[in-house]
Nucleic acid binder design. Structure first.
Length: 981
RNA sequence: GGGCCUGUAGCUCAGGUGGUUAGAGCACACGCCUGAUAAGCGUGAGGUCGGCAGUUCGAGUCUGCCUGGGCCCA
């Protein structure tokens, strides 16, 4: 009976199999919210900060670029916030105290539109709504989305000071923004200029590009003559011909643009077409200047039957007369010719009539030609020609009061008398060459559907090129200050520096005013006589005080007297424009970084890092740079990190209409936020990244590899305590090698986090888990872990090293995979507090062991030959498991043979037995060309299979069928059971 | 149209200053194991390094052009 019982004894219960509650499958979508709840209870972000501050840790400031509080987050938001969280958590892990306050951009047009849309749906007009009520609705709308987005960001595991989140519409923020604006006013950096904007006369309002839609529209066209006054001698007595679809802009004309790359000629009219029903305006002998390529076309329009080319002509520095100069002295100014690349010879005459107050190109070429205009003695003022109703101002000669578009009654939106009147006067002056009609695409208001015009409007600008004689700038201009600040900033990647530099070098003055309702006001008064902003510190202080208490609404709802402490209100105009939203966000550093948001929390400016998408070179990076350069003479950041855009799987832009979008919400629901984070941790974020089904699958696979590695360690470490740990001196070579790898990885991981090279960490971790842990360390030590006595030195060494690896992997990975590492850490140490609280532990320098690294490279080379030989045996069905083999390995090269000194070859090869011999062996042995000098003869292991550890050994025999080691281990186990019972 | 960036195996990525048959992990195929099991181990098959031309004894790496893609402008 007893013998039978022994023979059939199932040794499984005596084997120390991995034992852990950490499941193989995470169920992240369900698990993550539980972990988030735990973090919330622990007030994780503040707890970590407190711990760091108590330890006297250095401060690291990441300043959050505010997303716009409008709509659910998309993948780009997710990537941006995840990368920021990598920074926050990795700096925490490196021992820093990290200041990160998430924020939102709240003012601006998109929200205004939403609210207007709601009004339209209810049949109300925006103009009928009191501004305070309108702004309140905008505020409520933004507030709703701040809450929504905050929940979504938090669901991604983003840590930060959510309790003190900032918003540009907070009263304190609005006051700070206005205070920043006042600094520009005080230092004389603000000026009133003008710029043509899209204007809807019917609605009496400026329109943004996105508010304009294009429809076909029939316009009159004219060919008009500008007599040459001076310039190329060959042009004497000739006239430059322009073509335009907006005759009403002729009174606003101040120049004619040409393109130096186009060839022009002087053409003389020889004969006019006969038998016309009307008298043409062209006459034989007329000399006209047009582009060679377009001469036929122009002559045809002018009903010229024959003409000849008289000469070439050079337009450089040519000056013309205004076509209406003969009728009124008011048009007696010089009309210079300006070179411009916007001019083409595809249509028209090859010249562009230039009215700087009524066209974007016109405006830009006018500004660019400042030098030339000065040299020619031309007045550079851009004239205001039409009023908000599109009627000519009284000061416009010949046409005062005439409207371009009708704005009242049934005819609203139709052409008024202006075009016709201008044509009549051109005829009278003898300078109309021809006219016609043209159906073309023309901008219309998307609301009223009425045509719009380009109209010069007064606007406020910040000067880029005025020398600033104050302590901050020391005589430098804003542009130069900003350029110097760029040089003092670190850009990752480095190309960003050049990119923003080019933009700042070439940008025009900063246009900061908008004729809108939802924003921070240009809260200032302007002297009605001089047009100069009032610079009065007491007034400004009062304005800021009121806004801080009541919000920016107060600026619009309270009378001027409330702010004008003592000043005569009748002398000043209250400016009710709002600030460009980029001024808002450009000011965030002032109220987020410099304000002490709560006693005890340190403040710090400039920030260590700004981290945004590469589009922000023109956006937030630049607005922040200009704002801070204007007010503080330096950038608000020490370093700028940019990431690319997220594209679909094929590398194409995502769009709802293409249906190729990946929503963060659906990834979270299907796979978990951790998968999205790991994706961000694997890609090269500096470049554009791709995401899609297969990519997410790859990510999930990588996740499983890491998770299973952690799980195996948890299982193998069951019951492990420090009492079991062994010192380095007692470690076998394999453990020393793993410790060496931990030492290397510690160095690499720290360097990678310092450099924000997150994918270097991820890659190193995955490869370590696969190559050194799973396929080497775990595989070799499985036998020891399962079968050695618990007090065996070999097993204790393995568990000691496994514990060290677990301790490090869980913190190295915690910035990238906070959920899983938290889960793993708390599984092993349920009472040790949050994993995120930890700092990457110091790694003893003594762990470095280059000799072991070299040894194991050699050992693995030999092992690969053994594996090759065993693979053939399997294929031939001579063996199955490696434990059925007992390879005989001949190693010719001394260095390779030496590598096995102190090692058990069978253990390394994971076979039951192995024989290692120096020198050559029989020719039929297995070899690999890439490992010369190693020959393997894969014999079957002779002996009996140990019923417990399954190794085939000669020492195993009936009745127990145990090897010596297992016999001993079972005995110890039995005694342990007895003691327990 | 302009400025900047970018294109290495099915996927994600490595490949200092140009130098032997271009690497890794995953996926894939095949085999093994069945005491990490929707796991583990092993073996293998995948690439004209976007294309063309040039510099060079030699280019994935340097230059030019072309092409695909992206961001920002016009």
């Amino acid at each position: 009976m007893a013998d039978d019982a022994e023979q059939t004894r199932d040794y499984r219960e005596t084997v120390f199999l991995p034992d852990t509650p950490f499941p193989m499958r995470a169920g992240l979508p369900k698990l993550e919210p539980q972990i988030l709840e735990k973090w919330a209870e622990a007030d994780l972000y503040r707890a970590v900060r407190k711990a760091r501050q108590d330890a006297g840790a250095p401060l690291f400031v990441l300043h959050d670029g505010p997303p716009y509080a409008n709509g659910a987050i998309h993948i780009g938001h997710a990537l941006n916030k995840i990368l920021k969280d990598f920074v926050v958590r990795s700096r925490f892990a490196l021992g820093f105290d990290v200041d990160y306050v998430p924020g939102w951009d709240c003012h601006g047009l998109p929200i205004e539109w939403k609210i207007e849309e709601q009004y339209r749906a209810k049949g109300r007009r925006k103009d009928d709504v009191p501004v305070a009520e309108f702004r309140a609705e905008c505020r409520a709308y933004a507030d709703k989305w701040i809450g929504e987005q905050m929940r979504e960001f938090q669901r991604l595991g983003i840590t930060g000071d959510w309790a003190h989140r900032y918003a540009t519409m907070d009263y304190g923020s609005e006051a700070a923004i206005v205070a920043e604006f006042h600094k520009f006013v005080a230092s004389g950096q603000i000026f009133r200029g003008s710029k043509p904007v899209m204007w809807s006369p019917v609605e009496r309002t400026a329109l943004a590009d996105a508010e304009v839609e294009y429809h076909d529209h029939v316009s009159p066209t004219i060919w008009a003559k500008f007599p040459v006054q001076s310039g190329d001698e060959r042009a004497k007595g000739a006239a430059v011909v322009i073509w335009t679809t907006t005759p009403w802009t002729i009174p606003a004309n101040r120049a004619v643009s040409y393109n130096p790359a186009i060839s022009y000629g002087v053409f003389e009219v020889e004969a006019i077409e006969q038998d016309l029903p009307f008298e043409p305006w062209a006459a034989p002998g007329d000399r006209l200047i047009v582009a060679d390529k377009l001469a036929d076309e122009v002559m045809k329009a002018a009903k010229v039957a024959s003409f000849k080319r008289v000469s070439d002509v050079d337009c450089d520095r040519m000056v013309l007369a205004h076509p209406l100069a003969a009728l009124d002295d008011g048009f007696g100014f010089k009309v210079p010719m300006l070179p411009g690349e916007h001019v083409t010879d595809d249509a028209g005459t090859g010249f562009v009539h230039t009215a700087p107050g009524h066209g974007a190109d016109d405006y830009l070429v006018w500004l660019k030609s400042r030098q030339l205009l000065t040299e020619l003695g031309v007045d550079q003022t851009i004239p205001d020609t039409v009023d908000p109703d599109s009627a000519y101002y009284p000061h416009v000669p010949l046409f005062p009061g005439l409207k371009v578009l009708e704005t009242e009654g049934k005819k609203a939106g139709k052409f008024g008398p202006a075009n016709g009147a201008v044509m009549e006067k051109l005829i009278e002056a003898g300078n109309l060459l021809a006219r016609g009609r043209l159906e073309h695409s023309y901008p219309h208001s998307w609301r009223s559907k009425a045509p719009v015009i380009f109209r010069n409007t007064p606007q406020w600008f910040i000067r880029m090129d005025a020398a600033l004689e104050d302590a901050v700038h020391g005589g430098k201009t804003l542009r130069q200050t900003a350029l110097d600040a760029i040089d003092a900033t670190a850009f990752h990647p480095a190309a960003g520096k050049n990119r923003i530099r080019t933009m700042v070098e070439g940008r025009p003055d900063w246009l900061i005013s908008r004729q809108r309702a939802w924003g921070s006001p240009l809260a200032m008064f302007v002297d009605k006589e001089t047009g100069e902003p009032l610079r009065d510190e007491a007034v400004n202080a009062r304005i800021v005080e009121v806004i801080a208490a009541e919000g920016a609404d107060a600026w619009f709802t309270r009378p001027a007297e409330d702010f004008l402490a003592g000043q005569d209100a009748s002398k000043y105009e209250k400016v009710e424009d709002i600030l460009d939203v980029w001024f808002d966000s450009g000011s965030t550093h002032s109220f987020v970084l410099e304000n002490q948001r709560e006693p005890g929390l340190p403040t710090h400016s400039p920030a260590d890092l700004y981290l945004e998408g590469s589009d922000q070179h023109r956006g937030w990076f630049q607005s922040s740079l200009l704002e801070s350069s204007g007010t503080r003479g330096r950038a608000p950041y020490k370093a700028v990190l940019t990431h690319g855009f997220t594209l679909d799987e094929k590398g194409e832009k995502m769009s709802k209409s293409l249906g190729n979008t990946i929503e963060p919400q659906s990834v979270i629901k299907d796979s978990g936020a951790e998968i999205l984070r790991l994706w961000a941790g694997m890609v090269d974020y500096a470049d554009d990244q791709r995401i899609g089904k297969t990519i997410l699958q790859t990510t999930t696979d990588a996740y499983r590899k890491i998770r299973n590695t952690l799980r195996y360690m948890l299982g193998a470490l069951a019951g492990f305590t420090d009492a079991e740990a062994l010192p380095l001196e007692d470690m076998p070579p394999l453990e020393r090698f793993i410790l060496h790898r931990l030492w290397e990885l510690d160095r690499d991981v720290r360097a990678a986090y310092e450099a924000y090279a997150f994918s270097d960490v991820t890659r190193a971790m995955i490869e370590f888990c696969q190559n050194e842990l799973s396929s080497l360390f775990f595989d070799v030590r499985r036998d020891s872990l399962y079968c050695d006595r618990p007090d065996a030195l070999r097993r204790r060494a393995a568990r000691t090293v496994m514990d060290a690896a677990f301790e490090r992997l869980t913190i190295w990975l915690s910035p990238l995979m906070p959920f899983t590492t938290e889960e793993a850490w708390s599984t092993r140490h349920p009472n040790a507090g949050p994993n995120t609280l930890r700092i990457i532990p110091e790694t003893p320098a003594a762990w470095r062991n280059d000799a072991e690294a070299e040894r194991w490279a050699k050992v693995q080379a030999v092992t690969s030959v053994v594996n090759g030989a065993l693979e053939i045996e399997r294929r031939e069905k001579r063996i199955g498991a490696a434990l059925e083999a007992a390879p005989q390995v001949a190693v010719a090269e001394a260095a390779l043979a030496q590598a096995f000194e102190g090692l058990d070859a069978a253990e390394v090869f994971r076979t039951s037995q192995a024989e290692l011999q120096s020198g050559e062996t029989a020719d039929e042995a297995f070899r690999l060309p890439e490992v010369p000098g190693v020959a393997v003869r894969p014999f079957r292991a002779e002996g009996t299979k140990c019923a417990r550890c399954w190794r085939v050994l000669a020492e195993v025999s009936a009745p127990k069928f145990l090897c010596v080691r297992c016999d001993d281990a079972v005995e110890a186990w039995d005694i342990g059971q007895g003691a327990a019972a």
